[in-house]
């Protein structure tokens, strides 16, 4: 690929005529530029092609510093965007070789973009994670009179059964949490719980969900989650919420369709 090629990255699309004055810079500290593409407006940056051409992404795919900083730049612009209005976030990276090809791509996908915009209009994403805090303890052999091998086996099987029952109970409680929160959201997605390595927590994550919430309902949403968090604490569950996020989880057609109602 020639290195003098123009590269345009798209952060997302918004309603036209959104004021982007004073927004933070995006990826590689590039300024954000609005590209009108009726009936929407794309938030873009022109990136230096030698640093962001596909080969560069492959080169940097394992360079956490590079990737983390690029991801932060993308997210920074989208955070500014949801403060200013409704935005359909694009996945990172969304690269186009020039204004012409960008306009063509937006045109070709106008229906999908419009549908996504309709879905997220007046709404933002909130994340809710639930961690399990009731680590099942080790078999306490001291407390029971274990004299024979069969005593041990009986104690052991009793322990296994107790654990299975605890698991079922947790499963039901998490499900109830999810459904109660879902009651005051427009749509919901459950993602794979993050590994402790990713979550940075020792407690196992049992729910990693995203909810699409009306902007006007955010206070009610928070109150509801807080109530659930309070109640769940004594049941061995730690509930955490974060937001508002750009509606990352509800921008893509397939995912949002799958999300309409899940158990």
């Amino acid at each position: 690929m020639p290195s003098n090629r123009v590269l345009i990255h798209v952060y997302g699309v918004m309603e036209p005529r959104t004021d982007i004055l004073g927004w933070p810079t995006g990826i590689a500290d590039a300024p954000v530029e609005a590209v009108a593409a009726d009936p929407i407006m794309a938030l873009t940056s022109v990136l230096p092609s030698e640093e962001f051409e596909p080969a560069a992404w492959e080169r940097h795919a394992e360079d956490a510093t590079w990737l983390g900083s690029v991801a932060a730049g993308h997210h920074r612009v989208l955070q500014a965007a949801i403060a200013a209005g409704d935005v359909v976030p694009f996945r990172l990276p969304s690269l186009y070789g020039g204004l012409g090809s960008l306009r063509r791509a937006l045109d070709d996908n106008a229906i999908h973009i419009t549908q996504a915009m309709e879905r997220i209009r007046g709404r933002v994403e909130w994340a809710v994670k639930v961690y399990r805090t009731d680590e099942p303890g080790e078999l306490d052999l001291e407390s029971e009179p274990v004299r024979t091998g069969s005593d041990y086996l009986i104690a052991r099987s009793r322990e296994m059964q107790a654990r299975a029952e605890a698991d079922t109970l947790v499963h039901e409680r998490v499900r109830t949490c999810y459904e109660r929160i879902n009651d005051i959201s427009v749509a919901a997605v459950r993602n794979a719980p993050q590994d402790p390595v990713l979550s940075g927590r020792s407690q196992p994550m049992v729910l990693n969900a995203a909810f699409l919430v009306e902007r006007a309902d955010q206070q009610a949403f928070r109150t509801q989650v807080e109530r659930i968090a309070q109640r769940s604490q004594s049941q061995g569950l730690l509930v955490e919420a974060s937001g508002p996020w750009p509606a990352y989880n509800f921008a893509s057609i397939a995912k949002a369709d799958a999300a309409v109602r899940q158990p």
Binding site: G97, L198, V225, A229, S242, S252
Partner: peptide
């Protein structure tokens, strides 16, 4: 009980979203 602000958005959360979610509009550079 709740951390309901942007500080709670960890790097892992951001990466999980920006690299994996969001609408995909296929262009000439992939």
């Amino acid at each position: 009980y709740l951390s309901t602000h942007a500080q709670a958005q960890s790097l892992a959360d951001v990466l999980e979203r920006v690299l994996d979610k969001g609408i995909v509009i296929v262009g000439d550079i992939q």
